[in-house]
Design a protein around this nucleic acid. Structure first.
Lengths: 258, 258
DNA sequence: CGTCGCTTTGAGCCATATCAATACGCGTGG
DNA sequence: CCACGCGTATTGATATGGCTCAAAGCGACG
């Protein structure tokens, strides 16, 4: 198996087939084997890596393919009329990008690489019919979409009811878990995004995020230098993420019978 | 075609088959006809209507079925450790509820009726294999999930970058559009949810929402009495929803090449 | 070695949460 | 049909978390 070639040219790259990809267990091929996996593999294009800042697609672009992040990281965001950017998600290796474009045939968000990033391109027109024939693929696609809904819902709950420190704490813990699931350290990792992107994702001002990092560090919760983070007291962070900072009501909504 | 029977018993109810359902164009059957539609129809169970406040499912319940709202309205929400409720979505007739449970086999959110509500129950174990055989069904399921992602993303952008009045204005307009698509008036409609639920959904305090209604009314943007709303100046609302109240940065995030 | 962009730090203010109390509707029971 | 009581909504007063504006560090990169 060829090592990750750093200089990949934009030809047909048979290297890193799904079967030998380390992300097999997280990505679309989960639960698919043998001949079926071959068929999926054949429709996937490995493109040249994206440089930091390069777009995978922009808002409004026609939907052609889903993208699986192979290495690096991608952010998705909207740009509203005033040019303000709202980051809606970060995508790590093994995750799909572009699922939200299936409905209307256009990308409602832009996606851009946060660092040097390689992706697998999965043309939807070829993937979709394949799901009819490969039950495992069909189910996995649904599972991944469903999980993205769950993630968005968690993000929503974060923005809706946590205060600033709760948001950052929850974010760091969830990122930690995502890295752990990929076989990296849960305690020490690199934040692929800028403070600005992070602030946008968390619905906060950059300055607030910066101050929180300083404070968390002073309280012994973590060590942070630039993009490297080491969680010193995950339990303490969890306490902040979960119990602490509340917002709005504690009363029940409408509805009678319980 | 039998009229909507108000007293439906929990037997096999052949009434309101998909083919004669007015929501045909919004719901799962879109694009499916004839014999295929019959097959889908046969796996759907029409249950007795839910009373206001009744749960469709709770967080953590095993995932058995998707639910299509036929009449009424449903809210989905999480209950965090402290008992605080975060409303993540409202579902109107023709919309599916429960898609986020496919991934893990459990419902990550609870769903409860905001008013007397009837739903179609679609057992997932039977639906899933059917999508292999009915291309239109497969595509429509993906489309609906994808659209829910888009909705969540819009909600996210709302919480992340709009101020209070922008959030309420945007919400009212989107609700107006949803009613319009269902053949109801875009100007005058009923809010199925309590102020508390609305506040939670918008990430605001109930008091703030209440004050906003009062203010919008004073400014001639709308008339509101209790749950009835009449939009007087949709353009004005749009201006608030779009241009006005900003939050956080206007600078670009990371990334070099544009 | 200088420039540029990102991050951090500081000071002040404002939008919105909170706390508190009243008004209103609706459903209930007499 | 009306009075009562509770839950929901509105309104007022105050506190404060986080945003804004401003400026200085600090790396990275050419």
């Amino acid at each position: 198996m060829p090592a990750h070639s750093t200089q990949i040219i934009d030809l047909q790259q048979v290297k890193v087939a799904c079967r030998s990809c380390t992300l097999h267990e997280l990505c679309l091929p989960l639960g698919i084997e043998g001949e079926e996996l071959e068929r999926l593999d054949r429709i996937i294009r490995r493109r040249r890596p994206l440089a930091r800042g390069e777009h995978l697609f922009r808002r409004g672009d026609a939907f052609r393919a889903l993208y699986a992040v192979r290495s690096g990281a991608v952010k998705t965001y909207t740009l509203d009329e005033g040019g303000r950017e709202q980051v809606t998600g970060f995508h790590l290796p093994g995750e799909l990008v572009g699922l939200d474009a299936i409905g209307e045939g256009r990308h409602p968000l832009a996606a851009r690489a946060l660092e040097r990033t390689s992706v697998c391109e999965i043309p939807f027109e070829r993937l979709e019919p394949l799901t009819a024939e490969i039950p495992g693929l069909r189910r996995q696609l649904l599972r991944l979409m469903s999980r993205e809904l769950v993630e968005d819902e968690a993000h929503l709950a974060l923005l809706g009811q946590r205060d600033a420190e709760g948001r950052l704490a929850a974010f760091l813990l969830s990122l930690s878990q995502r890295y752990a699931r990929r076989g990296f350290s849960a305690e020490e990792f690199r934040l692929p995004m800028s403070r600005t992107d992070l602030a946008s994702y968390l619905g906060l001002a950059v300055e607030t995020v910066s101050r929180l990092f300083t404070r968390f560090q002073a309280e012994g919760l973590l060590e942070a230098e630039r993009k490297r983070v080491r969680l010193r007291d995950p339990g303490g962070l969890r306490a902040l993420a979960v119990g602490a900072g509340a917002r709005s009501s504690s009363r029940h909504g409408s509805g009678a019978s319980c």
